[in-house]
């Protein structure tokens, strides 16, 4: 490789086609997460904050993003928890939605056609009650076109007696990952909960079992209480904390996991703007997901993506790949 071609890859954009058929603009912030999940830039929409993309697309150009992670899909239709499901907290919010979703069959029939037209990578978030559920949903999706990969939700804290047992246990994480690895050649991203003693240990278990990447953090378990009525604010009693309030925790966890694993780390937790995203890259995130802030500014992910691309396009700027994990200690 000549010096010229190296500099060309760094500064010029060119079109290519990814393994999942999406046209792929190699912007200066383009990055591959492996196994065909090639992102035009490292900004993704986080699961559970964008439904299936239909509502956002009129307010935000989703084709400018690296990808969208759908609402968690389960085998069966889920109505979710009873109200009250969410409450605002200082610089954040708690939610206990309860994985409301249309179920895998309706997802394929009603949601995938629109998702395919977004012009970005579609990563389907998957949740199940047991290993068999996860396996069945992925198997059902395997011959569905337009899916770039799966994010496996092992860590939703808001459904009692269900997925939480996987995400907090290295052995269970390993079992689910290994099972799905045997089923799919597609990208497998394992989403990690911060509600554990050692998140690095869980991340390592996922890596050893064949995960292509890990994403973190899912929400932190929290609670809101009304002292007048002496009742919990949320019907579910506890919920998941997200928003700017959790960013320092997320940065610490991403840094911890980045040091422990070799596979790509996808960071999230309280990202509200370009600066927040850049902080996650510094501590080792190869890509980021924007979540709660979509509720506040529906076009925020597009803005962040444009600014990240702009930053790494500047003549004197560092190469994006060398910026990842560049924390100086």
């Amino acid at each position: 490789m000549t010096t010229m071609s190296i500099s060309a890859t760094h500064t010029d954009s060119h079109t290519a086609v990814t393994s999942n058929g999406q046209s792929f603009i190699a912007t200066p912030a383009a990055i591959s997460l492996g196994r065909g999940l090639d992102l035009k830039n490292p900004v993704l929409l986080a699961s559970g904050t964008v439904s299936y993309g239909e509502e956002l697309r009129s307010l935000c150009d989703l084709s400018r993003l690296g990808g969208i992670v759908t609402k968690a899909i389960s085998l069966e239709v889920r109505e979710g928890n009873l109200p009250q499901r969410m409450v605002e907290t200082p610089s954040g919010m708690l939610n206990a939605i309860g994985l409301a979703n249309v179920g895998v069959e309706n997802f394929i029939a009603e949601k995938m056609p629109s998702l395919r037209t977004l012009g970005t990578n579609v990563i389907v978030n998957i949740v199940g009650k047991g290993v068999e559920d996860y396996a069945e949903v992925v198997t059902r999706l395997e011959d569905v076109e337009g899916i770039a990969g799966y994010e496996i939700n092992l860590s939703c804290p808001n459904v009692k007696g269900e997925c939480i047992i996987f995400g907090v246990d290295a052995k269970a994480t390993s079992e689910v990952t290994r099972t799905l690895r045997r089923i799919t050649p597609r990208h497998l991203m394992i989403k990690l909960t911060p509600n554990v003693t050692s998140i690095a240990e869980i991340a390592l278990a996922a890596e050893d079992a064949g995960a292509d990447s890990v994403s973190l953090i899912n929400t932190l378990v929290g609670m809101a209480v009304d002292y007048r009525s002496q009742r919990p604010v949320l019907k579910n009693i506890t919920g998941g904390l997200s928003g700017p309030a959790v960013k320092p925790v997320a940065l610490a966890k991403v840094w911890e996991v980045f040091q422990a694993v070799k596979i790509p780390v996808v960071g999230m937790g309280g990202i509200t703007n370009f600066e927040d995203a850049m902080e996650f890259f510094v501590v080792g995130a190869k890509a980021v997901q924007v979540g709660t802030q979509n509720f506040v500014y529906p076009n925020i992910s597009e803005k962040i993506a444009v600014e990240v691309e702009g930053y790494f396009s500047r003549e004197n700027s560092v190469k994006f790949s060398s910026f990842i994990g560049s924390l100086k200690i």
């Binding site: 559970g48 904050t49 964008v50 439904s51 509502e55 956002l56 307010l59 609402k71 979710g80 009873l82 109200p83 499901r85 969410m86 919010m93 939610n95 939605i97 409301a100 979509n294 509720f295 529906p298």
Partner: peptide, 11 residues
């Protein structure tokens, strides 16, 4: 949360 159907917080 959002007013547009993406947060699922207002059932």
């Amino acid at each position: 949360g959002c007013g547009i159907g993406i947060c699922y917080g207002c059932p």
